[in-house]
Design a protein around this nucleic acid. Structure first.
Lengths: 344, 344
DNA sequence: TGTTAGCACTCTATCACCTTGAGTGCTAAC
DNA sequence: GTTAGCACTCAAGGTGATAGAGTGCTAACA
């Protein structure tokens, strides 16, 4: 069976109409609504072919046609108009990101929420564990006798705070010294690269503060090393799923949303991007994650200096507006890259 | 119409059975399941009275009875066994809170989640704006040329981080000086108490760093003063609602959950506690918040040194297990108070 | 006087059944 | 190759009958 241009147009019509209405699309609808210049009977014949090719399917005999996963795939790969995007929505996102950059984290959260609203999907933001795992600056601050605050600034300006118990006798100067030693020796290193002799060096110079250093190092390593355990993941617009007609069944929604609250599942989903550059679209079961086998996932990497620093993902029903979703996500990733570049 | 002890027992049976089964309760069910020593006919007569008193109602003629809001009210006020609580669940919560206290914020979030799970309700934690609005310690840290990190520790050990642009020429010593001046003058003060002469004093001593100080003060005041704008609210177990049979309708759930994502609504809900001490139970429309008129809300204050520092709330269907909910919430509030007390 | 058994009554939930309409596939004519 | 026409299929929606849960009332009972 050959795929000619008329078949393609009919497939496109089926996809677009189904995305819009969420109802199976009949031959009559297509012949009336989309101007193909042929009658519904002809379209019926073509649709029978498309069904044979596995691109569309019928929920039951007397219903219209619905795109299959393969059909969506064909649409996304060959038919979709990739630049089709609402300019205002685009502005909204870029504006959002460029504004108030001083509040670390807030910006990401807000942008994710906005992207979710515009696309009516759920968004995931994930910072890559390759990045942010090296130390930029560590400082111990005396808070009150016996208590200090450890402030850790990562290479990507993320910040962690931990309280630390210290001997009452330690002064601000002692803490400064400890901070300095740790900074000098560990700045820019990943936890894997800590070497015995570096650590020995720190301890040797700080034998009397050994207990504090030990505790601080332990916290530090847990933050830098086991990043994936408390890797920052932002989720936006989880409730958007509830408006989709495919999720009118409560238990289905519940299972899905509960899955999305589990970091393992999110990590698995986001790991599904195969081409390192640009945008990956996974339709239905393609993601390989059982919990979202009825959803499509779109993932964008964003890079700084050629290295992937994070991913933005969009999760929605298979019947989602791929054109808008892809271009919005693309905009988002580009603006984030730009913002990162500037702030470096 | 008098409320005698048998009527009370029947009302209690209706409430308990309805809480358990979510189905209207018939006279036969009560006579068989709850050992009242009278026949279903007698119970029917009593139920007719209870209905006349407005404490129970019938969805339709041939259905059993369901407690009215007034019925729940009566149950909560006079019948409920307040110490009825599963000891293990209690242990779970207190254990959770007492553990790993060094990770500020995390503990609260986790405890909320757990409380939500145990009660199968949604939980809200809200830190009162009276508290946490005074400065304990401020420190400016040099990050890289032209950039500093402002670390702010509040009186309740909450921490805020903000990046600050500074003149490239400023040294660590300059920043220390600025930090010290701000600390000396503003520690322990609320933003309302900042006085012109105090600020003048800071500026006079730091004329050459005026720009930086200005910027820092602005951020500081926005953090301390307009606390309610970014007041920390933790929400836990929002999805629990989805398991309740009263929320099998998706649009209903969606509206509710979307309301609960709005801080104004949460603030309104949590403002509904009238008795300053102990626990408030608002049943259905009693909360006065339209969005949760089909839910009940239970609110607990927790205090340190006689002053309310925060509230914990529980939101669930009107048909909720009040006894367990109240005592769990109570446990939670007490343990939090205890934890705060210790850490002060 | 309070309690109970018995019975008629009411209303919902459920199922089978039918009708309707959307949509198809096939065929014959263009 | 295209199209009009027609028989066919199937889900959705409406109707009517039935079963079952629960009530209220009445008369008998202790």
């Amino acid at each position: 069976m050959e795929m000619d241009s008329r078949k393609a147009k009919i497939l496109e019509a089926v996809v677009l109409d189904y995305i819009e209405t969420a109802e199976p699309v009949g031959s009559r609808t297509i012949s009336k609504k989309y101007d193909l210049g042929v009658s519904s009977a002809t379209i019926r014949n073509e649709m029978a072919d498309l069904e044979e090719m596995g691109l569309i399917e019928q929920p039951h005999t007397s219903a219209g046609r619905v795109p299959s996963e393969a059909g969506y795939r064909y649409y996304v790969d060959y038919l979709m108009n990739k630049s089709d995007i609402k300019e205002e929505a685009k502005q909204l996102i870029t504006g959002q990101i460029r504004a108030k950059r001083e509040q670390v984290g807030e910006v990401l959260r807000d942008s994710m929420k906005m992207l979710a609203e515009v696309t009516n999907c759920t968004t995931v933001m994930m910072l890559d564990d390759k990045h942010g795992t090296t130390l930029k600056l560590l400082q111990l601050l005396p808070v009150e006798p016996g208590k200090a605050l450890m402030v850790i600034i990562m290479e990507d300006d993320k910040i962690e705070n931990r309280f630390l118990e210290i001997p009452e006798s330690m002064t601000k100067e002692d803490l400064d010294l400890v901070s300095m030693m740790i900074n000098q020796n560990l700045r820019g290193l990943k936890v894997d690269d800590w070497q015995r002799n570096i650590l020995e060096n720190i301890f040797q110079n700080l034998t009397n503060q050994r207990q504090v250093v030990d505790c601080a190092l332990e916290m530090l390593s847990s933050i830098l090393g086991i990043q994936n355990k408390d890797k920052k993941i932002y989720l936006g617009g989880g409730l958007n799923m509830l408006s989709q007609p495919e999720f009118k069944d409560v238990t289905k929604v519940k299972n899905l949303l509960e899955s999305l609250e589990q970091e393992e599942v999110l990590t698995q989903i986001m790991a599904a991007d195969d081409n390192e550059t640009g945008i990956t679209v996974k339709i239905g079961a393609e993601s390989g994650v059982d919990q979202v086998k009825d959803c499509s996932v779109i993932i964008a990497n964003y890079k700084v200096k050629g290295e992937t620093v994070g991913k933005v993902g969009l999760i929605g029903p298979t019947r989602m507006d791929y054109a808008t979703a892809v271009s919005m996500l693309n905009t988002m990733a580009l603006t984030l890259e730009e913002a990162y570049q500037e702030s470096e």
